[in-house]
Amino acid sequence: MSSKPDKEIKSLVERGSDRSTPGSRGLFILFRALDLPIQYGILSSRSLGAPLVNALGGAHLVPSGPPVYLFGTSIGLPPQRAILFGMAVGSFVKQTHWATSISQEPVTPISAGFVAALNTIFNSINTLLFTNTATSVLSYASVGWDETRLPVQTIVGVVMFIVGMGLEWVSEMQRLKFKKDPKHKGKLYTGGLFGLARHINYGGYTLWRAGFAVAAAGWVWGMVVGGWLVYDFAKRAIPELDAYCGKRYPGQWAQYKNSVRSKLLPFIL
């Protein structure tokens, strides 16, 4: 009888291959770009999400307060909504950079569509929850319905977003620089932020995703999103990557796991 760890774990990433897939990468970027008008449409005064919110028995929250100006031009969204839209833009920029400059493995059309759709779903749930009066962070914040005053949840969410995005982005750039040096061929990267947690890029993603959720719908929703991502990484992505690295860097990976005990975030997970 084969044990569970012996079973092959399916991955969205074709690890160990340098096959070029520009078409799939372009498809991923296109799908991620389509997320921006969707999020703006949900957050704007002509909300795309209002029919859905009302159909589910909610009450659509109409934007309040003057719009934010950027470089002298109004973006048509009050501060709270501008922040949420900025998070959607930030996630698009980061993931576009990942697809064009960081990722070295092939991307299939299926994985490109799936990952892009998953991120759009996460973003859309956040913005829809914000625009529903019963679930919006404004419904129980001390600022009332004034979108020009930022509740503590939004401030904390922004900090989580910035820190998490930084951890994911910087750690991946550090690893890329190491891999591009020919003298490091066949060596496992264990420096930089990866010296604090073995999968700190996953931890960063979890943190900024949870921060986005907190800024949109508060503490409980942030914990749900963060908890689900931790569970998913622990049960799917991390075991798959552990199995791959254990085969590619047998001695190095075992030593690395022994010296760096944290998986996602140092001293936490």
Results as ranks from 00 to 15, higher is better:
T133E: 00
A134R: 04
T135A: 01
S136M: 06
S136R: 03
V137L: 00
L138R: 03
S139W: 03
Y140W: 11
Y140A: 15
A141I: 01
A141H: 00
S142G: 12
V143T: 15
G144I: 04
W145C: 08
E147Y: 06
T148L: 12
R149Q: 13
L150P: 02
P151A: 08
P151K: 02
V152W: 10
T154N: 13
T154Y: 07
V156C: 12
V156P: 12
G157W: 02
V158S: 13
V159L: 15
V159D: 07
M160G: 02
F161W: 12
I162S: 07
V163M: 08
M165F: 05
G166R: 12
L167S: 07
L167C: 09
E168R: 01
E168T: 06
V170S: 07
V170R: 06
S171Y: 03
M173D: 09
R175P: 13
L176S: 10
L176E: 07
F178T: 03
K180Q: 15
D181W: 01
P182R: 03
H184N: 15
K185G: 09
G186K: 03
L188I: 08
Y189W: 05
T190L: 04
G192E: 08
L193D: 00
F194L: 09
F194I: 00
G195K: 08
G195D: 10
L196V: 06
L196I: 08
L196C: 08
A197N: 07
R198I: 06
I200D: 05
I200S: 03
Y202L: 08
G203K: 04
Y205L: 08
L207T: 14
W208Q: 01
R209G: 15
G211N: 02
V214A: 13
A215E: 12
A216V: 09
A217T: 03
G218F: 00
G218W: 00
W219A: 14
W219I: 14
V220M: 14
V220S: 15
W221V: 13
W221Q: 10
G222M: 13
G222V: 14
M223G: 13
M223W: 12
M223A: 15
V224P: 02
V225R: 01
V225T: 05
W228K: 09
L229Q: 09
